[in-house]
Every structure is written in C-alpha cells, then in structure tokens.
C-alpha cells in the first residue's frame, strides 16, 4: 500500500487515487507536423524507469485534482509531490 501525499488533502491510502502514468510527456503542439516515428514516440514509448519516476496521480475519491508524485519504482518510496499550478 502506498501513502500518497496529495498536495491538497494530505497523505491518503492509494485506494483513493488513480494512477495516470508518467509525467512530463507534453502533447506535441503540432501533431500533424510530426513524422509517424515521432508521433509513435509520444503515443507509446515510455521511460518506464527503474528508480526515480515522475508520475501523475489523481485524487479521485478526494479533491479530484491531478498532481505529480516522484516515487522510486523499485522500493515504492515516495520522494516528493507537486501540483500542476497553484498551491494548497
């Protein structure tokens, strides 16, 4: 079980949250300008990092906000959390 530190509500059991995958994959501004390879890279390719991992979580059963968590994917230790703008 992970204790997810929601920046708005405080630490809660992971049951209250939805995992949203790796953070820092901005949608390309002009998809039509990309090659198929570049588009596939955005669409499917992931770092899937072993170790420090920045990822998106949503406090689904709470404030419903998406935020960023940094977590070690080997130990599941949570290293930090941040918002998508605004401060609690």
């Amino acid at each position: 079980m992970l204790l997810i530190p929601c920046p708005w509500c405080g630490p809660r059991e992971d049951d209250e949250f939805t995992f949203g995958g790796e953070a820092d994959f901005p949608r390309p501004a002009e998809p039509e300008a990309l090659t198929d390879e570049q588009w596939a890279d955005y669409l499917f390719m992931r770092d899937n990092r072993r170790g420090r991992h920045r990822e998106q979580w949503c406090h689904t059963a709470g404030c419903r906000r998406w935020f960023i968590v940094e977590r070690d994917t080997v130990t599941n230790e949570i290293l930090g959390a941040g918002t998508y703008g605004g401060s609690p």
Partner: peptide
C-alpha cells in the same frame, strides 16, 4: 497493480 513498479510485493488491496 495500476502504478508502474518493479516492486515484488504488490498491493494487498
């Protein structure tokens, strides 16, 4: 488990 993880315990939930 939904989150990406290499941990070998898994979530008891």
């Amino acid at each position: 488990d939904a989150p990406v993880s290499y941990d070998l315990n898994g979530n008891f939930r």
